[in-house]
Design a protein around this nucleic acid. Sequence first.
DNA 1: CGTTTTTACTTGTACGTACAAGTAAAAACG
DNA 2: CGTTTTTACTTGTACGTACAAGTAAAAACG
Lengths: 235, 235
Amino acid sequence: MEEKRYRQVQNFLKLQIQKGYYVVGDYLPSENELCSTFSITRTTARKALEELMKEGFIGRQHGKGSIVRERRQSLGLLTVKGFSEAVGKDVTTVFLQHPQPGFWNPEIHFPISENEIRESCIHFARQRCVGEIPVMIEYNWLANTHLEGIGDIAFIDGSFFKTLSQHYRIEIIGSEQELRAENANKNIAVLLRIPLGSPILHISLKFHTSKNNFYIYSELYCNTVNYPIGNSYHL
Amino acid sequence: MEEKRYRQVQNFLKLQIQKGYYVVGDYLPSENELCSTFSITRTTARKALEELMKEGFIGRQHGKGSIVRERRQSLGLLTVKGFSEAVGKDVTTVFLQHPQPGFWNPEIHFPISENEIRESCIHFARQRCVGEIPVMIEYNWLANTHLEGIGDIAFIDGSFFKTLSQHYRIEIIGSEQELRAENANKNIAVLLRIPLGSPILHISLKFHTSKNNFYIYSELYCNTVNYPIGNSYHL
DNA sequence: CGTTTTTACTTGTACGTACAAGTAAAAACG
DNA sequence: CGTTTTTACTTGTACGTACAAGTAAAAACG
Protein backbone atom coordinates (compact mmCIF):
# COMPACT_ATOMS: atom_id res chain seq x y z
CA MET A 1 0.00 0.00 0.00
CA GLU A 2 1.15 3.51 -0.73
CA GLU A 3 1.85 5.76 2.21
CA LYS A 4 -1.06 7.92 3.27
CA ARG A 5 -1.16 11.39 1.76
CA TYR A 6 -1.32 13.23 5.08
CA ARG A 7 1.65 11.28 6.37
CA GLN A 8 3.69 12.15 3.29
CA VAL A 9 3.08 15.85 3.93
CA GLN A 10 3.65 15.40 7.67
CA ASN A 11 7.01 13.69 7.11
CA PHE A 12 8.07 16.20 4.48
CA LEU A 13 7.46 19.09 6.85
CA LYS A 14 9.09 17.22 9.73
CA LEU A 15 12.22 16.72 7.63
CA GLN A 16 12.30 20.43 6.78
CA ILE A 17 12.18 21.24 10.48
CA GLN A 18 14.80 18.63 11.36
CA LYS A 19 17.09 19.92 8.61
CA GLY A 20 16.73 23.44 9.96
CA TYR A 21 14.92 24.95 6.94
CA TYR A 22 12.39 26.05 9.50
CA VAL A 23 13.69 27.04 12.91
CA VAL A 24 11.88 27.63 16.19
CA GLY A 25 9.52 30.58 15.80
CA ASP A 26 9.12 30.24 12.03
CA TYR A 27 5.68 29.78 10.52
CA LEU A 28 5.05 26.76 8.30
CA PRO A 29 3.13 27.30 5.03
CA SER A 30 -0.57 27.88 5.64
CA GLU A 31 -3.12 25.14 5.08
CA ASN A 32 -4.13 26.64 1.75
CA GLU A 33 -0.53 26.88 0.57
CA LEU A 34 -0.01 23.21 1.46
CA CYS A 35 -3.19 22.41 -0.47
CA SER A 36 -1.89 23.90 -3.69
CA THR A 37 1.76 22.76 -3.44
CA PHE A 38 0.79 19.16 -2.63
CA SER A 39 -2.49 19.05 -4.56
CA ILE A 40 -4.46 18.00 -1.50
CA THR A 41 -7.58 19.26 0.24
CA ARG A 42 -7.61 21.21 3.49
CA THR A 43 -8.86 18.11 5.31
CA THR A 44 -5.60 16.35 4.44
CA ALA A 45 -3.41 19.39 5.08
CA ARG A 46 -5.02 19.89 8.49
CA LYS A 47 -4.53 16.23 9.38
CA ALA A 48 -0.81 16.50 8.57
CA LEU A 49 -0.43 19.62 10.70
CA GLU A 50 -2.45 18.15 13.57
CA GLU A 51 -0.18 15.11 13.61
CA LEU A 52 2.89 17.37 13.72
CA MET A 53 1.32 19.15 16.66
CA LYS A 54 0.71 15.84 18.46
CA GLU A 55 4.37 15.01 17.88
CA GLY A 56 5.30 18.33 19.46
CA PHE A 57 7.02 19.91 16.45
CA ILE A 58 4.58 22.78 15.97
CA GLY A 59 1.89 24.79 17.72
CA ARG A 60 -1.14 26.18 15.96
CA GLN A 61 -2.58 29.66 16.48
CA HIS A 62 -6.08 30.54 15.37
CA GLY A 63 -5.92 33.32 12.79
CA LYS A 64 -2.13 33.22 12.49
CA GLY A 65 -0.63 29.90 11.46
CA SER A 66 1.51 26.92 12.49
CA ILE A 67 4.60 27.92 14.42
CA VAL A 68 7.65 25.71 14.92
CA ARG A 69 8.20 24.86 18.58
CA GLU A 70 11.06 23.59 20.66
CA ARG A 71 10.15 19.92 20.94
CA ARG A 72 9.97 19.31 24.64
CA GLN A 73 7.26 16.96 25.74
CA SER A 74 7.98 15.87 29.23
CA LEU A 75 9.34 12.40 28.71
CA GLY A 76 9.30 10.87 32.09
CA LEU A 77 10.97 13.30 34.38
CA LEU A 78 13.28 15.29 32.20
CA THR A 79 12.16 17.08 29.10
CA VAL A 80 13.47 16.22 25.69
CA LYS A 81 15.17 19.56 25.67
CA GLY A 82 17.08 18.47 28.68
CA PHE A 83 18.16 19.10 32.15
CA SER A 84 18.27 22.90 32.40
CA GLU A 85 14.51 23.16 32.39
CA ALA A 86 14.10 20.50 35.05
CA VAL A 87 16.13 22.51 37.54
CA GLY A 88 14.93 25.85 36.17
CA LYS A 89 18.42 27.32 36.10
CA ASP A 90 21.20 27.77 33.58
CA VAL A 91 23.19 24.61 33.52
CA THR A 92 26.73 24.08 32.32
CA THR A 93 27.86 20.68 31.13
CA VAL A 94 31.26 19.05 31.54
CA PHE A 95 32.11 15.79 29.76
CA LEU A 96 33.53 13.21 32.11
CA GLN A 97 33.85 10.89 29.15
CA HIS A 98 33.27 11.76 25.50
CA PRO A 99 31.27 9.33 23.38
CA GLN A 100 33.45 6.33 22.60
CA PRO A 101 33.12 2.58 22.19
CA GLY A 102 32.95 0.72 25.45
CA PHE A 103 31.11 -2.05 27.24
CA TRP A 104 27.56 -2.45 28.46
CA ASN A 105 27.78 -1.76 32.18
CA PRO A 106 26.00 -3.81 34.86
CA GLU A 107 25.09 -0.45 36.43
CA ILE A 108 22.39 -0.14 33.75
CA HIS A 109 19.15 -0.81 35.54
CA PHE A 110 16.81 -1.81 32.74
CA PRO A 111 17.40 -5.21 31.11
CA ILE A 112 19.30 -5.12 27.82
CA SER A 113 18.19 -7.33 24.95
CA GLU A 114 20.39 -10.12 23.58
CA ASN A 115 20.69 -8.24 20.30
CA GLU A 116 22.07 -5.20 22.06
CA ILE A 117 24.56 -7.25 24.08
CA ARG A 118 25.93 -8.80 20.88
CA GLU A 119 26.50 -5.35 19.42
CA SER A 120 29.19 -3.12 20.83
CA CYS A 121 28.27 -0.09 22.86
CA ILE A 122 28.87 3.65 22.92
CA HIS A 123 29.25 5.25 26.32
CA PHE A 124 29.47 8.84 27.46
CA ALA A 125 29.23 10.57 30.81
CA ARG A 126 28.58 14.17 31.78
CA GLN A 127 28.55 16.31 34.87
CA ARG A 128 25.87 19.01 35.05
CA CYS A 129 26.58 22.11 37.12
CA VAL A 130 24.62 25.14 38.25
CA GLY A 131 27.27 27.82 38.52
CA GLU A 132 30.29 26.01 39.94
CA ILE A 133 28.28 23.45 41.85
CA PRO A 134 27.81 20.00 40.30
CA VAL A 135 24.19 18.89 40.69
CA MET A 136 23.94 15.83 38.47
CA ILE A 137 26.09 13.04 37.11
CA GLU A 138 24.79 11.38 33.99
CA TYR A 139 25.91 8.08 32.43
CA ASN A 140 24.63 7.06 29.00
CA TRP A 141 24.87 3.87 26.97
CA LEU A 142 23.61 3.03 23.50
CA ALA A 143 24.22 0.43 20.81
CA ASN A 144 27.06 1.29 18.45
CA THR A 145 25.24 0.40 15.24
CA HIS A 146 22.90 3.35 14.79
CA LEU A 147 24.94 6.54 15.14
CA GLU A 148 27.91 6.45 12.79
CA GLY A 149 30.53 9.03 13.67
CA ILE A 150 28.99 10.04 16.99
CA GLY A 151 32.44 10.06 18.59
CA ASP A 152 33.83 12.55 16.06
CA ILE A 153 31.21 15.30 16.10
CA ALA A 154 30.28 17.91 18.69
CA PHE A 155 26.71 17.83 20.03
CA ILE A 156 24.47 20.46 18.39
CA ASP A 157 23.93 23.20 21.00
CA GLY A 158 25.47 20.76 23.47
CA SER A 159 22.34 18.61 23.32
CA PHE A 160 22.49 14.91 22.59
CA PHE A 161 18.79 14.73 21.75
CA LYS A 162 19.05 17.67 19.36
CA THR A 163 21.99 15.98 17.64
CA LEU A 164 19.96 12.78 17.43
CA SER A 165 17.12 14.65 15.73
CA GLN A 166 19.00 16.98 13.40
CA HIS A 167 21.99 14.84 12.49
CA TYR A 168 20.54 11.34 12.54
CA ARG A 169 16.77 12.07 12.14
CA ILE A 170 16.02 9.97 15.19
CA GLU A 171 13.37 11.20 17.63
CA ILE A 172 12.66 10.20 21.20
CA ILE A 173 9.16 8.73 21.25
CA GLY A 174 8.90 7.47 24.81
CA SER A 175 10.66 6.50 27.99
CA GLU A 176 10.55 4.26 31.01
CA GLN A 177 12.03 5.34 34.29
CA GLU A 178 12.57 4.24 37.84
CA LEU A 179 13.34 6.52 40.76
CA ARG A 180 15.18 5.81 43.98
CA ALA A 181 16.51 7.79 46.90
CA GLU A 182 19.93 6.42 47.78
CA ASN A 183 23.02 7.21 49.79
CA ALA A 184 25.82 8.55 47.62
CA ASN A 185 28.61 6.02 47.10
CA LYS A 186 32.23 7.11 47.07
CA ASN A 187 32.41 7.76 43.33
CA ILE A 188 29.23 9.83 43.18
CA ALA A 189 30.06 11.71 46.39
CA VAL A 190 33.39 12.81 44.94
CA LEU A 191 31.90 13.87 41.61
CA LEU A 192 29.03 15.78 43.25
CA ARG A 193 31.37 17.13 45.99
CA ILE A 194 29.08 16.01 48.79
CA PRO A 195 29.75 13.90 51.88
CA LEU A 196 29.74 10.13 51.45
CA GLY A 197 26.25 8.80 52.18
CA SER A 198 24.36 12.02 51.42
CA PRO A 199 20.88 11.37 50.05
CA ILE A 200 20.81 11.49 46.26
CA LEU A 201 18.09 10.97 43.71
CA HIS A 202 18.92 8.10 41.37
CA ILE A 203 16.96 8.00 38.10
CA SER A 204 17.20 5.03 35.75
CA LEU A 205 15.97 5.76 32.24
CA LYS A 206 15.33 3.82 29.07
CA PHE A 207 14.48 6.03 26.12
CA HIS A 208 12.57 4.62 23.18
CA THR A 209 13.41 6.08 19.78
CA SER A 210 11.80 6.30 16.36
CA LYS A 211 14.39 3.75 15.14
CA ASN A 212 13.38 0.16 15.70
CA ASN A 213 15.11 -1.66 18.56
CA PHE A 214 17.28 1.35 19.31
CA TYR A 215 17.18 2.43 22.94
CA ILE A 216 19.23 4.82 25.04
CA TYR A 217 19.97 3.89 28.62
CA SER A 218 20.82 6.49 31.23
CA GLU A 219 21.63 6.46 34.92
CA LEU A 220 21.34 9.85 36.61
CA TYR A 221 22.52 10.79 40.09
CA CYS A 222 21.18 14.10 41.37
CA ASN A 223 22.01 16.24 44.35
CA THR A 224 18.59 17.75 45.03
CA VAL A 225 19.48 19.74 48.15
CA ASN A 226 19.65 23.10 46.39
CA TYR A 227 18.07 22.26 43.02
CA PRO A 228 15.21 19.80 43.15
CA ILE A 229 14.10 18.14 39.91
CA GLY A 230 10.86 19.72 38.75
CA ASN A 231 8.53 19.29 35.85
CA SER A 232 4.93 19.71 34.93
CA TYR A 233 2.35 18.05 32.80
CA HIS A 234 -0.76 19.43 31.22
CA LEU A 235 -3.44 17.76 29.16
CA MET B 1 -21.79 32.14 21.45
CA GLU B 2 -23.35 28.73 21.58
CA GLU B 3 -21.16 25.84 22.55
CA LYS B 4 -19.60 23.98 19.65
CA ARG B 5 -21.54 20.97 18.44
CA TYR B 6 -18.63 18.51 18.81
CA ARG B 7 -18.02 19.68 22.35
CA GLN B 8 -21.67 19.16 23.27
CA VAL B 9 -21.44 15.55 22.10
CA GLN B 10 -18.03 15.13 23.73
CA ASN B 11 -19.30 16.38 27.09
CA PHE B 12 -22.48 14.34 26.85
CA LEU B 13 -20.51 11.14 26.33
CA LYS B 14 -18.01 12.10 29.02
CA LEU B 15 -20.85 12.53 31.51
CA GLN B 16 -22.24 9.12 30.59
CA ILE B 17 -18.84 7.60 31.30
CA GLN B 18 -18.40 9.54 34.54
CA LYS B 19 -21.88 8.49 35.69
CA GLY B 20 -21.04 4.88 34.99
CA TYR B 21 -23.55 4.31 32.17
CA TYR B 22 -20.55 3.11 30.23
CA VAL B 23 -17.86 1.24 32.17
CA VAL B 24 -14.33 0.29 31.23
CA GLY B 25 -14.45 -2.12 28.28
CA ASP B 26 -17.82 -0.95 26.97
CA TYR B 27 -18.16 0.32 23.43
CA LEU B 28 -19.60 3.79 22.86
CA PRO B 29 -22.17 4.26 20.07
CA SER B 30 -20.59 4.11 16.63
CA GLU B 31 -19.90 7.27 14.65
CA ASN B 32 -22.95 6.66 12.48
CA GLU B 33 -25.19 6.12 15.51
CA LEU B 34 -23.95 9.40 17.00
CA CYS B 35 -24.69 11.07 13.66
CA SER B 36 -28.35 10.09 13.72
CA THR B 37 -29.01 10.57 17.44
CA PHE B 38 -27.42 14.03 17.50
CA SER B 39 -28.22 15.04 13.90
CA ILE B 40 -24.60 15.72 13.11
CA THR B 41 -22.21 14.62 10.38
CA ARG B 42 -19.45 12.10 10.81
CA THR B 43 -16.87 14.90 10.77
CA THR B 44 -18.41 16.27 13.96
CA ALA B 45 -18.94 12.87 15.57
CA ARG B 46 -15.33 11.93 14.87
CA LYS B 47 -14.07 15.22 16.32
CA ALA B 48 -16.01 14.56 19.55
CA LEU B 49 -14.59 11.03 19.83
CA GLU B 50 -11.06 12.17 19.00
CA GLU B 51 -11.23 14.76 21.77
CA LEU B 52 -12.40 12.09 24.22
CA MET B 53 -9.43 9.99 23.16
CA LYS B 54 -7.05 12.92 23.74
CA GLU B 55 -8.56 13.28 27.22
CA GLY B 56 -7.88 9.61 27.83
CA PHE B 57 -11.45 8.43 28.33
CA ILE B 58 -11.61 6.13 25.31
CA GLY B 59 -9.46 4.26 22.83
CA ARG B 60 -10.42 3.73 19.21
CA GLN B 61 -10.03 0.49 17.27
CA HIS B 62 -10.17 0.39 13.50
CA GLY B 63 -13.05 -1.76 12.40
CA LYS B 64 -14.47 -2.20 15.90
CA GLY B 65 -15.37 1.00 17.73
CA SER B 66 -14.59 3.34 20.62
CA ILE B 67 -13.86 1.50 23.85
CA VAL B 68 -13.98 3.07 27.31
CA ARG B 69 -10.56 3.06 28.98
CA GLU B 70 -9.25 3.44 32.47
CA ARG B 71 -8.16 7.07 32.46
CA ARG B 72 -4.53 7.00 33.41
CA GLN B 73 -2.34 9.48 31.63
CA SER B 74 0.87 9.75 33.50
CA LEU B 75 0.45 13.01 35.38
CA GLY B 76 3.87 13.86 36.52
CA LEU B 77 5.13 10.81 38.24
CA LEU B 78 2.09 8.98 39.42
CA THR B 79 -0.74 8.03 37.15
CA VAL B 80 -4.24 9.31 37.63
CA LYS B 81 -5.19 5.80 38.55
CA GLY B 82 -2.78 6.00 41.39
CA PHE B 83 0.08 4.57 43.25
CA SER B 84 -0.28 0.83 42.67
CA GLU B 85 0.84 1.12 39.06
CA ALA B 86 3.84 3.26 39.95
CA VAL B 87 5.31 0.54 42.14
CA GLY B 88 3.93 -2.27 39.97
CA LYS B 89 2.56 -4.19 42.95
CA ASP B 90 -0.71 -4.55 44.80
CA VAL B 91 -0.91 -1.77 47.29
CA THR B 92 -3.05 -1.56 50.42
CA THR B 93 -4.01 1.79 51.81
CA VAL B 94 -4.43 2.81 55.46
CA PHE B 95 -5.89 6.16 56.42
CA LEU B 96 -3.73 8.02 58.91
CA GLN B 97 -6.28 10.79 58.86
CA HIS B 98 -9.66 10.73 57.16
CA PRO B 99 -10.70 13.81 55.16
CA GLN B 100 -11.69 16.55 57.60
CA PRO B 101 -11.43 20.31 57.93
CA GLY B 102 -8.03 21.50 59.02
CA PHE B 103 -5.39 24.10 58.31
CA TRP B 104 -3.11 24.77 55.38
CA ASN B 105 0.22 23.33 56.45
CA PRO B 106 3.57 25.09 55.92
CA GLU B 107 4.84 21.67 54.82
CA ILE B 108 3.09 22.29 51.50
CA HIS B 109 5.86 23.07 49.06
CA PHE B 110 4.06 24.93 46.28
CA PRO B 111 2.83 28.44 47.06
CA ILE B 112 -0.86 28.71 47.94
CA SER B 113 -2.90 31.58 46.55
CA GLU B 114 -4.47 34.22 48.82
CA ASN B 115 -7.91 32.99 47.83
CA GLU B 116 -7.10 29.51 49.02
CA ILE B 117 -5.64 30.75 52.30
CA ARG B 118 -8.85 32.63 53.04
CA GLU B 119 -10.90 29.50 52.51
CA SER B 120 -10.71 26.69 54.99
CA CYS B 121 -8.94 23.49 54.06
CA ILE B 122 -9.60 19.77 53.90
CA HIS B 123 -6.74 17.49 54.87
CA PHE B 124 -6.26 13.77 54.67
CA ALA B 125 -3.27 11.47 55.02
CA ARG B 126 -2.68 7.90 53.96
CA GLN B 127 -0.08 5.21 54.34
CA ARG B 128 0.51 2.95 51.33
CA CYS B 129 1.79 -0.56 51.94
CA VAL B 130 3.02 -3.43 49.80
CA GLY B 131 2.10 -6.49 51.83
CA GLU B 132 2.75 -5.47 55.42
CA ILE B 133 5.53 -3.03 54.58
CA PRO B 134 4.73 0.70 54.41
CA VAL B 135 6.34 2.21 51.32
CA MET B 136 4.78 5.67 51.08
CA ILE B 137 3.25 8.31 53.30
CA GLU B 138 0.93 10.71 51.55
CA TYR B 139 -0.38 14.06 52.84
CA ASN B 140 -3.07 15.89 50.90
CA TRP B 141 -4.61 19.34 51.20
CA LEU B 142 -7.37 21.00 49.23
CA ALA B 143 -9.73 23.97 49.58
CA ASN B 144 -12.94 23.17 51.45
CA THR B 145 -15.30 24.92 49.06
CA HIS B 146 -15.43 22.51 46.14
CA LEU B 147 -16.16 19.05 47.51
CA GLU B 148 -19.24 19.14 49.70
CA GLY B 149 -19.59 16.08 51.90
CA ILE B 150 -16.15 14.68 51.14
CA GLY B 151 -15.67 13.86 54.82
CA ASP B 152 -18.81 11.71 54.94
CA ILE B 153 -18.38 9.42 51.95
CA ALA B 154 -16.04 6.53 51.25
CA PHE B 155 -13.70 6.88 48.28
CA ILE B 156 -14.94 4.98 45.21
CA ASP B 157 -12.71 1.89 44.86
CA GLY B 158 -10.50 3.55 47.47
CA SER B 159 -9.38 6.11 44.91
CA PHE B 160 -9.59 9.83 45.59
CA PHE B 161 -9.24 10.70 41.90
CA LYS B 162 -12.00 8.27 40.92
CA THR B 163 -14.26 9.84 43.56
CA LEU B 164 -13.40 13.27 42.22
CA SER B 165 -14.42 12.20 38.71
CA GLN B 166 -17.50 10.11 39.38
CA HIS B 167 -18.96 11.93 42.39
CA TYR B 168 -17.95 15.52 41.72
CA ARG B 169 -17.30 15.44 37.92
CA ILE B 170 -13.90 17.01 38.45
CA GLU B 171 -10.99 15.72 36.38
CA ILE B 172 -7.26 16.10 36.87
CA ILE B 173 -5.94 18.01 33.88
CA GLY B 174 -2.34 18.60 34.85
CA SER B 175 0.28 18.66 37.57
CA GLU B 176 3.47 20.26 38.72
CA GLN B 177 5.97 18.37 40.79
CA GLU B 178 9.30 18.66 42.49
CA LEU B 179 11.50 15.79 43.57
CA ARG B 180 14.06 15.58 46.31
CA ALA B 181 16.11 12.89 47.96
CA GLU B 182 16.12 13.55 51.70
CA ASN B 183 16.97 11.92 55.01
CA ALA B 184 13.88 10.66 56.79
CA ASN B 185 12.89 12.77 59.77
CA LYS B 186 11.61 11.18 62.96
CA ASN B 187 7.95 11.27 61.98
CA ILE B 188 8.46 9.76 58.54
CA ALA B 189 10.97 7.21 59.82
CA VAL B 190 8.44 5.91 62.35
CA LEU B 191 5.61 5.77 59.83
CA LEU B 192 7.73 4.02 57.20
CA ARG B 193 9.42 1.83 59.88
CA ILE B 194 12.91 2.70 58.70
CA PRO B 195 15.93 4.04 60.61
CA LEU B 196 16.07 7.78 61.23
CA GLY B 197 18.01 9.43 58.39
CA SER B 198 17.38 6.75 55.76
CA PRO B 199 17.25 8.16 52.26
CA ILE B 200 13.68 8.80 51.13
CA LEU B 201 12.19 10.21 47.98
CA HIS B 202 10.14 13.34 48.68
CA ILE B 203 7.67 14.32 45.96
CA SER B 204 5.81 17.64 46.13
CA LEU B 205 2.77 17.79 43.88
CA LYS B 206 0.26 20.38 42.79
CA PHE B 207 -2.58 18.92 40.75
CA HIS B 208 -4.58 21.13 38.43
CA THR B 209 -8.25 20.25 38.01
CA SER B 210 -11.02 20.96 35.53
CA LYS B 211 -12.57 23.28 38.12
CA ASN B 212 -11.24 26.82 38.04
CA ASN B 213 -8.80 27.77 40.79
CA PHE B 214 -9.17 24.38 42.46
CA TYR B 215 -5.88 22.63 43.13
CA ILE B 216 -4.86 19.63 45.16
CA TYR B 217 -1.57 19.73 47.02
CA SER B 218 0.26 16.57 48.01
CA GLU B 219 3.49 15.77 49.78
CA LEU B 220 4.68 12.20 49.32
CA TYR B 221 7.46 10.43 51.20
CA CYS B 222 8.58 7.17 49.62
CA ASN B 223 10.84 4.40 50.80
CA THR B 224 12.28 3.29 47.46
CA VAL B 225 14.67 0.62 48.76
CA ASN B 226 12.46 -2.30 47.78
CA TYR B 227 9.88 -0.62 45.55
CA PRO B 228 11.22 2.18 43.36
CA ILE B 229 8.75 4.58 41.76
CA GLY B 230 8.40 3.74 38.09
CA ASN B 231 6.45 5.07 35.18
CA SER B 232 6.62 5.35 31.45
CA TYR B 233 5.65 7.74 28.74
CA HIS B 234 4.89 7.15 25.11
CA LEU B 235 3.98 9.55 22.36
C1' DC C 1 -19.02 -30.72 9.41
C1' DG C 2 -15.07 -27.86 8.59
C1' DT C 3 -13.46 -24.25 5.47
C1' DT C 4 -14.12 -20.39 2.56
C1' DT C 5 -16.71 -16.55 1.05
C1' DT C 6 -19.86 -13.08 1.72
C1' DT C 7 -22.09 -9.63 4.31
C1' DA C 8 -22.74 -6.01 7.44
C1' DC C 9 -20.88 -3.55 10.34
C1' DT C 10 -16.86 -0.58 12.25
C1' DT C 11 -13.16 3.34 11.81
C1' DG C 12 -9.73 5.61 8.46
C1' DT C 13 -8.58 8.51 4.53
C1' DA C 14 -9.60 11.94 1.19
C1' DC C 15 -12.35 14.47 -1.58
C1' DG C 16 -15.06 19.24 -1.69
C1' DT C 17 -17.94 23.37 0.14
C1' DA C 18 -19.33 27.14 3.24
C1' DC C 19 -19.05 30.14 6.76
C1' DA C 20 -17.29 31.56 11.61
C1' DA C 21 -13.74 33.63 14.11
C1' DG C 22 -9.12 35.36 15.13
C1' DT C 23 -5.18 38.48 13.44
C1' DA C 24 -2.78 42.25 11.56
C1' DA C 25 -1.96 45.51 8.25
C1' DA C 26 -3.92 48.62 4.86
C1' DA C 27 -7.40 51.91 3.80
C1' DA C 28 -10.87 55.16 4.92
C1' DC C 29 -12.61 58.46 7.97
C1' DG C 30 -13.20 62.71 10.79
C1' DC D 1 -2.61 62.86 12.38
C1' DG D 2 -5.00 59.62 15.30
C1' DT D 3 -8.96 56.53 15.25
C1' DT D 4 -12.09 53.48 13.05
C1' DT D 5 -13.29 50.49 9.41
C1' DT D 6 -12.24 47.48 5.90
C1' DT D 7 -9.62 43.96 3.76
C1' DA D 8 -7.00 39.91 3.23
C1' DC D 9 -5.23 36.67 5.25
C1' DT D 10 -5.09 32.78 8.95
C1' DT D 11 -7.22 28.51 11.48
C1' DG D 12 -11.74 26.45 13.36
C1' DT D 13 -16.22 24.32 12.80
C1' DA D 14 -19.59 21.82 10.23
C1' DC D 15 -21.77 20.41 6.41
C1' DG D 16 -21.78 16.27 2.80
C1' DT D 17 -19.84 12.31 -0.26
C1' DA D 18 -17.09 8.22 -1.54
C1' DC D 19 -14.33 4.56 -0.96
C1' DA D 20 -10.49 1.92 1.72
C1' DA D 21 -9.52 -1.15 5.30
C1' DG D 22 -10.22 -3.73 9.58
C1' DT D 23 -13.48 -7.00 12.19
C1' DA D 24 -16.57 -10.62 13.19
C1' DA D 25 -20.44 -13.18 12.41
C1' DA D 26 -23.51 -15.22 9.03
C1' DA D 27 -23.98 -17.67 4.82
C1' DA D 28 -22.38 -20.53 1.20
C1' DC D 29 -19.51 -24.08 -0.30
C1' DG D 30 -17.35 -28.69 -0.94
